[in-house]
Amino acid sequence: MTVSIQLEVNGKPVQAAVEPRRLLVHFLREDLGLTGANIGCETSLCGACTVLLDGDAVKSCTMLAAQADGASVTTIEGLAQNGELHPLQEGFWEKHGLQCGYCTPGMILSANYLLAQNPSPNDEEIREGLKGNICRCTGYHNIVEAVKYAAERMS
């Protein structure tokens, strides 16, 4: 049995028939080939699978593809515009905000949501805003710097 869904992914319309139990992250990764959203756990805690759903940061491993019907999804692949890196992408590169890179797409998209809510967060607000995303490499020190860099660039 499948359900048919229609949504927008990175600005492009997508139509698909999916198993009702198919997770959004598997739909994005395996059916659409958008492998930027990664899977690091099955308990909605690591945040590596974070994508934007109608502008909200959501963990795509704990959402069904069917629930995304009618929504607009942005993945890390859709963040750069016209070949220009998003300021957050630049910030993570400039400030060494990533090492292995596995958590990075989710971290950047969560930061994107944070900056949409609060364009000039202080350190504490950045740390509060990103606590749903785990990074095991950086100790977070440079992630805070990367987000500050982006906030300055975007202001």
């Binding site: 990764r29 080939g33 930027g36 890390i76 060494h96 890179g101 596995y102 990075t104």
Partner: peptide, 21 residues
Amino acid sequence: IKRREDPALITGRGKYTDDLK
């Protein structure tokens, strides 16, 4: 100097094992 590894990783183009098909 900035890492040459990063452009692929910050745009979702880096391929980890589970990304391979």
